[in-house]
Write a protein that binds this DNA or RNA. Structure first.
Length: 634
RNA sequence: GGCCCCGUAGCUCAGCUGGAUAGAGCAAUUCACUUCUAAUGAAUAGGUCUUUGGUUCGAAUCCAAACGGGGUCACCA
């Protein structure tokens, strides 16, 4: 409708305004609730052109459009706004159009280029936590939204399976795992624990032992014992101690950290971990076997978690296989003059002209850093998928700078696709108790949280649900659907860019702007439809009249395709969530005030049911984009 | 300190490509289940949109500064 009127105005611009107006001047918006009308044109931009009062200008435009478009019943100018009332037939024909489309709102499959979406990418020695839930739900939902917009999508993740941190877990397990009666160390099999949890436990044990050892060393230094340490350490320690004297608290804290780091590097545990990393890089068979074994435990554990989350991946990249990539590229870039070498042999890029700093891309010993790897991986992916058009990295906003630099480097290296790479940057998830800190044990474990949410849903559903005649399996599936739906919706309804507060009590709440609220509405509609199975609801409606609420609902349904586009453009599932909430709220209002099954006029009843079918269809489709399932009953 | 992000009701969040009287949910108060699933609906109350200045016919929205909160400035990833 908007588009149609806009075209009419543009086409007849000369006769109306005496000149060709720019498209931007024509601003349509939704009519405010308090005012009569369905669509509003802002008149102010035309007032100057027509050199008359807003009232006259509006009247002139309104009259003209009414002649051109028979769906306009009447118009009215109110304080600079031209409000149109559009005929019920128009809205009903819209409803019928929607009714005939099975995948309403979705663009044609594979009509747009191939995009890769990276998300999750966890560290393999820590179990997944609340932050990963936001990341995974977000990455998955954005992938689905892109697909709905016609893109082909490859969902991927980089598994961070290499480095000193992995060696820490391995070492701690070898040194500190108790032996059972068979003389075996702890395994997921003999302890019955999840692989990622078991490995995570040893990572923590390493940290504890290592800190304890460092503390002993510092105590020794403080009492002047440097017998096992080099002269350099002694000098450095004394220098720091001197600096500490007489400084303010903040500086003292910083220096304490430095001393601690100094001591940590002198611990036997750290030395052993570093040795292990060297052995790993040399592919020492024993170390490699241990590494493979423990990583497989972790993967098995993660698989369970991903399955519970309802996310999946099309392609995995392992850091152990990609960490050497990028070095050649850097050397190539060095030749091209994109990078420069410092005296010590380290390679840098100078981004000061772009308002950024100098950034290291290769260490002086020639080894790769994070950035080197990311450069290599990006190029590698475009080699793997020649049709690939762009890439989206779902990574926390603490890495905003990193990605800014990465994309800039790729662009400077001459990769044209660099401009199609973007960082889906999301804010931290805060707890009411403050920030999550793994060191202080204030992390919320993903598995625990999901279990808790499903347990709560189970309890509530047993209390309030309509479960008659459901099998145990069906019931359990429903509990899971509600619990997980609530959690996903809770994490996705907030604009990804923003930092958000996670309130555990609210996340399992069922009223208001929540997943279960939406699911409930869907179940209610399905119940209506089950009861009207004898009617032919495939048919379009012949109804001629609609109530105001009904019109509101149809307007919202009409908006759906543009909402999907908007969500893709913004890379924001929150757009979908908020839209669905609006639709559901409006429908509930309708449901509560307008008779449906008990309506006596068969034609009206049929129309209301057709409308309900399509509301359910859109709820289902929208929630699918968020990875939230909706029930037939609840 | 440099750079980046954020600041809307008691709380959690929408609204931000400038447009009419700034919206929801939670919490509070009240009403509606002999009626299609009350996990619902209706209503009341709650706001100097952090502050100041600028651009404009018009600013929560754009620009600048200040204040407050967070992030980041590793030869870690």
């Amino acid at each position: 409708m908007e588009q149609n009127l806009k075209e009419i105005l543009l086409k007849h611009s000369n006769e109306l305004f005496g000149l060709q107006v720019e498209e931007q001047l024509i601003q349509f918006q939704k009519t405010r609730k308090e005012v009569e009308g369905d669509l509003t044109l802002v008149i102010f931009p035309f007032v100057k052109l027509l050199r008359c009062s807003p009232l006259e200008a509006g009247d002139k435009i309104g009259k003209f459009l009414m002649e051109q478009n028979s769906s306009i019943l009447k118009y009215e100018v109110v304080s600079g706004f031209l409000n149109f009332v559009i005929s019920p037939e128009f809205w009903i024909s819209k409803l019928n159009g929607i009714h005939q489309e099975a995948t309403y709102g979705y663009a044609k499959e594979n009509s747009k280029p191939l995009i890769m979406v990276e998300y999750s990418s966890p560290n393999t020695n820590k179990p997944l936590h609340l932050g990963h839930l936001r990341n995974n739900f977000l990455g998955y939902a954005v992938s689905e939204i892109l697909k709905a917009n016609g893109h082909s999508v490859i969902k991927t993740q980089v598994i961070n399976d290499r480095g000193i941190h992995i060696c820490k877990s391995m070492l701690a397990w070898e040194k500190f795992s108790p032996l059972n009666e068979k003389g075996e160390r702890e395994t997921p099999q003999n302890t019955g624990s999840k692989g990622d949890k078991l490995v995570g436990k040893y990572y923590v044990i390493f940290d504890q032992q290592f800190n304890a050892e460092a503390k002993t060393i510092i105590t020794g230094w403080e009492s002047g014992d440097f017998t096992h340490f080099s002269e350099d350490i002694k000098t450095e320690f004394n220098r720091l101690e001197e600096a500490k004297a007489g400084k303010d608290e903040k500086a003292v804290k910083g220096l304490d950290e430095k001393i601690k780091d100094l001591a940590k590097n002198e611990t036997n545990l750290m030395r052993e971990a570093k040795d292990m990393l060297i052995k790993w890089e040399a592919r020492d068979p024993q170390v490699y076997l241990l590494w493979t074994t423990m990583n497989n435990w972790v993967y098995a554990g993660f698989d369970v978690t991903y399955k519970a989350m309802g996310v999946d991946f099309d392609k995995l990249y392992y850091e152990s296989e990609t960490f050497l990539l990028g070095k050649d590229i850097v050397l190539e870039g060095l030749k091209k003059g994109v990078f420069f070498k410092k005296e010590d042999g380290s390679v840098w890029i100078d981004l000061t002209a772009d308002g950024l700093d100098e950034k290291l891309v290769l260490r002086s010993d020639g080894t790769a850093v994070y950035m080197t790897q990311d450069i290599g991986t990006a190029i590698d992916r475009f080699n793997d998928y020649p049709a690939l058009d762009g890439m989206i990295y779902t990574v926390g906003n603490e890495q905003d700078y990193h990605f800014k630099v990465l994309f800039l480097i790729l662009e400077k290296m001459g990769y044209t696709w660099a401009k199609n790479c973007s960082h889906l940057s999301y804010g931290m998830v805060d707890l009411p108790t403050g920030k999550m800190k793994s060191r202080e044990g204030t992390v919320v474990d993903a598995d625990d949280l999901m279990q808790e949410v499903v347990d709560k849903a189970t309890e509530m559903t047993k209390e309030r649900g309509h479960l008659e005649g459901m099998s145990e399996n069906e019931k359990n599936d429903l509990f899971n659907l509600i619990g997980m739906g609530g959690l996903k919706y809770y994490l996705l309804k907030v604009d990804p860019k923003k930092r958000m507060m996670f309130n555990p009590d609210e996340s399992i709440e069922l009223n208001g702007n929540t997943g279960p609220f939406i699911q409930y509405t869907h179940a209610r509609i399905k119940s209506l439809l089950t009861k009207s199975a004898s009617l032919n609801l495939d048919q379009t409606t012949d109804c001629k009249k609609i109530e105001d609420v009904e019109k509101e609902i149809i307007k919202l349904l009409v908006e759906y395709p543009s909402v999907i586009e908007e969500a893709a453009k913004e890379q924001s599932p929150a757009v979908i969530a908020n839209y669905t909430y609006e639709l559901v709220k409006t429908y509930n209002n309708f449901y509560q005030t307008i008779p449906i099954l008990i309506e006596e006029n068969e034609i009206t009843k049929h129309m209301r049911l057709v409308m309900s079918v399509n509301v359910a269809k859109v709820i289902n489709s929208a929630m699918r984009l968020l990875g939230v399932r909706v029930p037939e009953r609840m």
